[in-house]
């Protein structure tokens, strides 16, 4: 094969894997482009796994000094390392909210969608915790999400092979291309959920599902990163 996909077109496939059938077909047949897709996908996954950075040392003291100039002196200044209990409360509030949302999701309140059990081995099932829509939504965001979940259903099972459900973390001899496709589809689902939450911030399905999907993405990123030189994954 002499003609290859432009890298920007391959990049677009990462975000909208269903938008360019011709490009997808080309990927199936062209190893070089497939490798490029996998590389971009790994880079994308690595971005989402970038951790937070430590603020510069002494930043708070400098801020305090500036505040003193602007707001005047304050007698109650204390080191911010005091009182760890408030920190625990702040830190714990995020996961508690996410868990509550997930519980709501698991409880079956789905903003107009009806769900039923799916095959126990499919990636969609792994991701959705055992439920996919049973009634096909006609249009709009619900339909988009339904299509995304079904896209998962039609894919292979790279994550099972990676070993999300294995106590030891699973094996590394997964199909890198399928894993990359999986990652791309997961990105699509995350995108759809975010847009849905933008439109309806209280949507219980999206708010329950999104943290789980993000967690899966993080785990996949960690697994891909842990899959070092000498493995079957295409190298950078």
């Amino acid at each position: 094969m002499t003609d290859h996909l432009h890298i920007e077109r391959i990049s677009a496939l990462l975000d909208e894997p269903w938008s360019d059938l011709a490009a997808e077909q080309h990927l199936e047949a062209c190893e070089e482009c497939r490798t490029e897709f996998e590389r971009l996908s790994r880079m994308r996954m690595a971005f989402s796994g970038l951790g937070e950075l430590e603020p510069p040392r002494g930043e708070w003291e400098r801020i305090q000094a500036s505040l003193e100039e602007i707001l005047g002196p304050d007698d109650s200044i204390v080191p911010i390392t005091a009182s760890p209990s408030w920190r625990r409360r702040l830190i714990s509030s995020g996961p508690v909210q996410a868990a509550a949302a997930l519980a709501l999701f698991a409880g079956g309140i789905f903003a107009g969608l009806q769900f039923t059990g799916a095959g126990s081995s499919s990636p969609a099932n792994v991701l959705a915790g055992g439920v996919i829509p049973a009634v096909i939504p006609a249009t709009g965001a619900d339909r988009e999400l339904y299509d995304a979940l079904n896209e998962f259903e039609s894919m292979g099972t790279p994550l099972r092979q990676v070993g999300f459900d294995q106590p030891d973390g699973g094996t590394l001899d997964f199909d890198a291309f399928e894993a990359a496709r999986y990652a791309a589809t997961l990105e699509g689902i995350i995108q759809v959920l975010r847009e849905r939450l933008q439109e309806a911030p209280g949507d219980p399905f999206a708010s329950g599902y999104l943290p789980y999907a993000l967690d899966q993405r993080q785990r996949l990123a960690e697994l891909l990163e842990a899959n070092g030189p000498g493995s079957s994954v295409v190298e950078w």
């Binding site: 937070e52 950075l53 430590e54 603020p55 930043e59 708070w60 801020i63 305090q64 505040l67 304050d74 109650s76 200044i77 204390v78 911010i80 005091a82 009182s83 408030w86 920190r87 702040l90 830190i91």
Partner: peptide
């Protein structure tokens, strides 16, 4: 209250 500001800073500085 600067102490409260400090706590807000600590929670979100990173």
């Amino acid at each position: 209250d600067r102490e409260a500001m400090g706590e807000l800073y600590e929670a979100h500085a990173r």
